[in-house]
Computed example of a mutant assay.
Amino acid sequence: MMIRLRYSLLSAALALCCLSAQAQQTDGLQQRMTSDEFKAAGLDKLSPQELQSLDGWLSAHGKVTTRVVTKVVTETGKPMFYPDQGKRTKIIAHVAGHFSGWSEGKVIKLDNGQTWKHVGDEQPSCMSGENPTAKIKPSLMGSWLMFVDGCNDTVHVERVN
C-alpha cells in the first residue's frame, strides 16, 4: 500500500514538473523573474517592444538541444541503482523514556537527539519497556524501517528532526 502511494505521489510530482516547465517556456522574462532579479539584470530599462523582442528571441533560441546522460557507478564501474543509499547508514540508539508500542503517527524520541514518526499502517505487537534499543535501517525508495526491542516486527518511519 505504501509503495503504491509513493508511486502515485511520484507520478503526480512528475506531471506537475512538466506543466511547470511548459509554463515557464511560454512566460516572458518578467513573469519568470522576481522584480529584484528583473531590475538587477537591467531589464526594467527596456521598452515594452524591446522586452517583447527579447522574449521572442529567447523562446526561439533558449531551448537546450543537447541531452546529458549521467550514470552513477561505484569505484569498480558497476551501476548504482540507488546512489543515495550509500549516504544512509544504520542507526542504533535507545528510545528516550517509556515505550508502549506502535500506533499510527506515533512520534518516538531517541537518546541520540533524533525524533522519528511512524508513517506506515503496520502495528506489530510490542512489550512495554523503559529505554529499549531501537534499530533504524534504510529501506527502498528512500524510506526507513525501525525495529524496537520487544516488538515482533519493523515499522516504516520518517525522521522528524
Rank of each mutant, 00 (worst) to 15 (best):
S11L: 15
D55Y: 02
D44G: 00
P132W: 02
W57F: 10
K63I: 03
V157K: 08
V119Q: 03
A12F: 08
A41K: 10
T115Y: 01
L54C: 03
A134N: 05
S100N: 12
A15F: 08
T66Q: 09
N152G: 05
G150I: 05
T133L: 07
Q22H: 12
Q52S: 14
D55G: 02
T70I: 15
H98G: 02
D84R: 12
S59F: 14
K78M: 11
V68W: 11
H94I: 01
K71C: 08
V69T: 15
K137P: 00
G120E: 02
L58I: 14
P124S: 05
M2G: 08
K39Q: 15
P79L: 10
K39A: 15
T70N: 14
R4W: 01
L14M: 09
A13I: 07
T34S: 15
A15Q: 14
D55M: 01
M141I: 01
D44V: 00
Y7C: 07
T66A: 02
M146I: 09
G77L: 00
G101S: 11
H156I: 06
L9D: 05
P48E: 06
S100A: 13
A93G: 07
L5V: 08
R88P: 00
G105P: 03
E158W: 02
S143E: 06
S35C: 11
M33P: 00
Q30R: 05
T74G: 10
G42A: 10
R88K: 07
S35H: 10
G62S: 03
G42D: 12
N161W: 06
D27M: 14
S103G: 11
A23Y: 08
V72E: 07
I108P: 06
I91N: 01
C18H: 07
A23E: 13
R159E: 11
V95L: 01
C17A: 13
G62A: 03
A15Y: 09
S128D: 06
S139G: 05
G77P: 00
K137F: 04
A13H: 11
I92Q: 11
Q114A: 04
K45V: 12
T66W: 02
V157L: 05
T66P: 00
N161V: 15
R88V: 07
I108K: 08
E122R: 14
A93D: 14
P83H: 06
R4T: 09
G77D: 01
L43D: 02
G97C: 06
T115H: 01
F81M: 15
A15G: 09
G142T: 10
